[in-house]
Design a protein around this nucleic acid. Structure first.
Length: 213
DNA sequence: AATGCGATTCTCT
DNA sequence: GAGAATCGCATTT
């Protein structure tokens, strides 16, 4: 199990967003790994993307991580109560990133359930099992991702890896097989004028942990 | 110093 | 489908 190379993130943001589907997002949590398979992402391009925090190349305290090295972590708070996780892409100085919108929970189910619902996973109804990590705020809650990770690099507390034998051993439930990748408009950015129609959202068509169909 | 609001989620209806 | 929760940050005074 090895973190993806920096070169993976040193590519077009839209390409990275699409290629992150199927990778495994893992959180180092109390000495254990918890997480699952990425099933939904969005690309945010920066300079010409009115939906992006870095639109026009603005540099504020909040968005500084976006200007850092590819493979960095950008976590911001939204609506005063949720966090969203992004991974930076492209060359240093190019403020672009990929928002991780949903994962399929596969490893550390009970820990994720306790973080989200203060209940054992075995006590969850089907509805809540589906709800565990099916949204950007939800997955941050389940994986205990907050602003303490902001502006750090992937690899220690948080990592993204390819499927391999080690991952296979950690799986606690059967995976949903990868289906068609859908390209869609991004969620929650109706204010972004022409950018609201960009097809920068990607998800697996048949995966039930995608936030919205 | 004050204001306005959001890359969301949950609970009702 | 509508409304509330809740606060850090960007922008304006």
């Amino acid at each position: 199990m090895k973190d993806l190379d920096k070169d993976f993130y040193l590519r077009k943001t839209v390409t990275v967003a699409k290629d992150l589907l199927g990778k495994y997002l893992l959180r180092n949590y109390n000495g254990q790994l918890i997480g699952g398979k990425i099933v939904e992402t969005e690309a945010y391009l920066g300079l010409n993307d009115k939906a992006a925090h870095s639109y026009g190349g603005k540099i504020t305290n909040r968005v500084k991580p976006l200007y850092g090295e590819a493979g960095g972590i950008y976590v911001y708070m939204i609506y005063g109560m949720y966090y969203c996780l992004n991974i930076t892409t492209e060359e240093t100085g190019t403020p672009e990133c990929v928002l991780i919108r949903a994962i399929e929970p596969l490893i550390g189910l009970n820990n994720m359930s306790l973080n989200r619902f203060k209940k054992e996973y075995s006590n969850l109804k089907e509805r809540d099992k589906k709800n565990l990590t099916s949204g950007p705020g939800k997955l941050c809650m389940a994986l205990n991702i907050d602003s303490s990770l902001n502006n750090k690099m992937l690899g220690e507390e948080l990592l993204i890896v390819d499927y391999d034998k080690e991952i296979e051993k950690l799986l606690e439930v059967e995976e949903i097989s990868d289906s068609n990748i859908v390209e869609a408009k991004r969620i929650g950015i109706d204010y972004a004028e022409e950018a609201k129609d960009f097809l920068y959202r990607f998800y697996y068509e048949d995966n039930k942990h995608v936030s919205k169909k």
